[in-house]
Amino acid sequence: MDQLLSTLRFYATDCNKLTIGNYAGFSKLTAQRIVHRVSCAIASLRPQFLCFPETIEKFNMAQRKFYEIASFPRVKGAMDCTHVRIQSPGGDNSELYRNRKGCFSVNIQAICNTNLELTDIVARWSDLTHDSTVFNNLNRRACFKRRVYGDAVVLVDGCYACKLYLMPPL
C-alpha cells in the first residue's frame, strides 16, 4: 500500500523521487524502483479497464447509449486531447515537450463513452503536436477510414476536421 500511495503521490505532485523517498522513508533509488514497478503493474491492467468496443454487441450498445442521452445517432465515443505535465525527458529533443506555459507536457488523446470511462488513450506525442495530427497517425483512424466500425462517428472539438467519421461542432 505504501508503494502504491507513494507512486500516486509522485504522479499527482510535481516533486521528484528524492522527495517521495524522503516522505515515505525510502532512498531515492528505492523510490525510483517503486515508481517503475507500480507503474508497470498499473499499465498491465490496461486491457481490463481500457476497452474500445469492438464486438457488434458492444458497438451497438455504445451507440444506443449516446442516442438515449442526446438523440445523436451513430456516435461511438467522444474524443479530445489534453496536455499532462511531465518532468523534463532530457536529451536533445526535450524542448519539444515544453508547452506554451513553460512546463513540460505530453499531448494525450483520449476517447470516452457515455459513462465517462476511457475506452482508448494515446500518450506518446510531444506538446507541439496538433490534436488532429495525433489522430491522423493512429491505427484507430485507419479503422474508421476503412469503415471497420461501419458508419460510426466520434464527437470531437473544433481542432479536428469534419470527416465521415469525425463530427466537430457546427
Rank of each mutant, 00 (worst) to 15 (best):
R74Q: 07
R74F: 05
R74I: 05
V75Y: 01
V75C: 08
G77K: 06
G77C: 05
D80H: 08
D80R: 08
D80T: 11
D80G: 07
C81Q: 05
C81A: 06
C81W: 03
T82H: 04
T82W: 07
H83Q: 13
V84I: 15
R85G: 00
R85E: 12
R85N: 08
R85V: 14
R85Q: 13
R85P: 00
Q87L: 08
Q87K: 12
Q87G: 04
S88R: 13
S88M: 08
P89W: 00
P89M: 02
G90N: 11
G90C: 09
G90V: 15
G91T: 15
G91S: 11
D92P: 07
D92W: 08
N93D: 14
N93F: 09
S94N: 14
E95L: 15
L96H: 10
Y97W: 14
R98W: 07
N99K: 12
R100Y: 03
R100F: 00
K101V: 14
K101Q: 14
K101H: 14
G102F: 04
G102W: 07
G102V: 15
C103W: 13
C103M: 09
F104D: 07
F104W: 09
V106P: 01
N107A: 06
I108G: 00
A110Q: 05
A110P: 02
I111Q: 01
I111L: 09
C112F: 06
C112I: 15
N113T: 13
T114C: 12
N115W: 08
N115L: 11
N115C: 09
N115Y: 10
L116D: 10
E117C: 09
E117K: 14
E117M: 11
E117D: 13
L118V: 15
L118K: 07
T119P: 00
D120H: 12
I121D: 05
A123P: 09
R124M: 06
W125P: 06
W125K: 11
W125N: 10
D127Y: 02
D127F: 01
D127E: 12
L128V: 11
H130I: 07
D131E: 09
D131P: 00
S132A: 10
S132M: 09
T133N: 10
T133M: 07
V134E: 01
V134L: 04
F135S: 02
F135R: 08
F135C: 05
F135D: 03
F135Q: 03
N136W: 02
N136D: 03
N137D: 03
N137Y: 01
L138K: 01
L138M: 09
L138R: 06
L138T: 15
N139L: 05
N139F: 02
N139Q: 04
R140H: 00
R140Q: 01
R140A: 00
A142L: 06
A142K: 12
